Computed example of a mutant assay.
Amino acid sequence: MNCSIARALDQIGEWWSLLIVRECTFGTTRFDQFQERLGIARNILTNRLKRLIDVGILEKVALGENDRRAGYRLTQKGEELFPVLVALLQWGDKWGMSLDGPPIRLVEHATGEPLAAVGPYSSSGRLLGIRDVRMEVGPGGTPSTEAVVAARNLAILGAGSEPLAEAGGQAAQGSAPARKPRAVKEG
């Protein structure tokens, strides 16, 4: 699938993989710690750790000079998953939270201020939603990517949202009418 989300999920999309990455952000390094904190079977943990090492998200490290066992830590690639975890945490706090409130609060270490919502921001600093962003075909796009992008923009943004085609200056044509978003009751 020619999709960056699909490629990312191929590496980290399995339930245990993101929980292992989360544990690394909590300072967990040893196999037995992962197993105890996650309640995961040894064989599954072994397989997930190996996969995360194979794709470059984790690396094995010596825990100490006198300790023969190896530990695990995030690589730079793994550390760059932190915003993904924060976004999932914030989404879970909003839509899956217990009546008591969130179990963990993330605050900036230097100021103690809560983190702002993770998301795409405009150049002026405004948080953008799905209807504020138009998709365009990237350099790795294919003709099928062009069709997907055009259909998405038409469905989400409506008529007139299509960028001008590169050849001929004609607007991309779509056949589906724009759908009106359903009202969602918050509660």
Rank of each mutant, 00 (worst) to 15 (best):
N2G: 11
N2K: 15
N2P: 14
S4L: 02
A8C: 10
L9N: 12
D10Y: 10
Q11M: 07
G13S: 09
G13M: 07
E14K: 13
W15Q: 04
W15P: 11
W16M: 11
S17V: 07
L19H: 15
V21L: 15
E23I: 00
C24I: 13
C24V: 09
T25R: 00
T25Q: 00
G27R: 02
F31A: 05
F31K: 07
D32G: 08
F34S: 08
F34K: 03
Q35E: 14
Q35V: 02
E36K: 13
R37K: 15
I40S: 05
R42C: 07
R42L: 07
I44K: 10
L45Y: 05
L45A: 04
L45W: 02
T46G: 12
N47C: 08
N47I: 10
R48E: 15
I53F: 06
V55S: 13
E59W: 02
E59P: 08
V61F: 13
A62R: 13
N66G: 05
R69K: 13
A70N: 02
G71T: 01
R73Q: 02
L74N: 01
Q76F: 09
K77M: 00
E79G: 01
E79V: 01
E80Q: 07
L81C: 08
P83Y: 04
V84F: 05
V86S: 02
A87M: 08
L88G: 11
L89F: 13
W91C: 12
W91N: 14
G92K: 15
D93K: 11
G96M: 10
G96I: 04
G96S: 03
M97Y: 06
M97N: 14
S98Q: 08
D100A: 11
R105G: 03
L106K: 05
L106Q: 02
A116I: 01
A116M: 12
G119K: 09
P120H: 06
S122T: 06
G125S: 04
L127V: 10
L128R: 04
D132L: 01
D132W: 05
V133I: 12
R134A: 15
E136N: 03
G138C: 04
P139E: 11
S144A: 08
V148W: 08
A150F: 06
A151I: 07
N153H: 06
L154Y: 03
A155Q: 07
G158S: 01
G160K: 00
G160C: 02
L164R: 02
G168T: 00
G169M: 01
A171S: 01
G174N: 12
G174D: 07
G174A: 15
S175D: 12
A176I: 04
A178S: 10
P181Y: 15
V184Y: 12
V184D: 10
K185V: 15
E186T: 14
G187A: 15
